[in-house]
Amino acid sequence: MYSREIDGKEYDFGVSGKLIMNVLVMYDRQTKSLWSQLLGKAVQGPLKGTELEFLPSFQTTWADWKARYPDTLALDIGFGGTFDPYESYYRSGATGVIGETIIDDRLYVKEFVIGVEQNGEPAAYPFSVLNDQPVVNDIVGGVPVLVVFDKEFGSGVVFNRELGDQVLTFSGGADLVLTDDETGSTWDGLTGTATSGPLAGEILERVKSTRSFWFGWKDFYPDTRLYGIDP
């Protein structure tokens, strides 16, 4: 999810039909620059080098979303059904159309990871590891991060666990309810909001993250650290 505004100017995006290392390349209709979806950055054209602002979004089920936000609107999708064309692709061993660019057998190519890159340091959190450890306190590129994994929906969010001058350490995870060791406050793991305790009302900042197949992430970041797998 990105902002379509750059320096106060509105842009809109289309699908370029091009790929970089098997990952979608968008283009903006105003300048025809090409943008890597994974990097959120223009890689060719007049805006080359410009980055889009990442915006926080959530992934969950319709029932859960509606319960949280009863006044929500939902995209009208007609009555084509909710068949996902990627369904069989998720399970097959084939990767992108051009094949893998880099072979790295640390993980099954089609496993999903949550990818984080801070200050030039990439880290990937495999779903198989997060499944056993849905709350991860880590440091990436000097930034203390909290990875919260929702087993039920297979989605993850990443927060900065530094609040003011305090670095918090989280535990828990059942039903996305977390507790920080420092103050004992209770947190909602989906939104990063403290719901009770001394820090009630505080909100953790989101950290840019990407859900990706392992093969896509490591093609972009071959020297990535692989949490829970690397020694």
Binding site: F54, L55, P56
Partner: peptide, 13 residues
Amino acid sequence: LAACATAVTPTSS
């Protein structure tokens, strides 16, 4: 198939 190999989930403050 290829394009969806990666889906950016949101983020940022």
